[in-house]
């Protein structure tokens, strides 16, 4: 029989579009990742993905309404990080975002958040009706 699975670190909270709230959550996340032995590169990747998910939630989901919040839930084990961000908007179609790396879009200032999340995480899933994104990072088996 293998070793029993490591206990998951879990957190859930409501974040408003205020830097102090986002920064406090990022500090908690970094601490949990470090406690589960994720290295600096993974911490950078997960932090960036959460940052982009929150920017999308506040700007596109909640339409920059400072009274609205994003609900953030995460669960972290030694092998996997799962973060869910839910905004108070009506949702959007991620397929409608043009490829920012296409030659004709390279100099357009916006539209890189989803791409960065997809590049750094193992899975990025937008859940119906489109106001919820689930980010998963799975540790690569050596």
């Amino acid at each position: 029989m293998g070793a029993s699975p490591a206990k998951a670190s879990q957190w859930s909270g409501k974040l408003h579009p205020r830097r102090d709230e986002v920064e406090a959550a990022q500090v908690l996340l970094a601490g949990a990742l470090t406690a589960h032995n994720f290295d600096e590169a993974i911490c950078f990747a997960v932090r960036l993905a959460l940052e982009e998910a929150l920017v999308n939630a506040f700007r596109h989901g909640n339409r920059d309404d400072p009274t609205k919040h994003a609900l953030v839930d995460w669960s972290i084990t030694d092998d996997e990080v799962t973060i869910q961000v839910t905004d108070q908007g009506s949702g959007f179609d991620p397929g409608s975002v043009p490829d920012p790396t296409a030659e004709e879009n390279l100099e357009i200032p916006s539209g890189r958040g989803i791409m960065l999340m997809r590049a750094y995480m193992t899975e990025v899933e937008h859940l119906a009706p489109g106001n919820m994104v689930r980010l998963v990072y799975r540790r690569k088996q050596s």
Partner: peptide, 10 residues
């Protein structure tokens, strides 16, 4: 040490 897509846009 960290930057977001919003910084890239700027």
């Amino acid at each position: 040490e960290h930057l977001s897509s919003a910084a890239l846009g700027t």
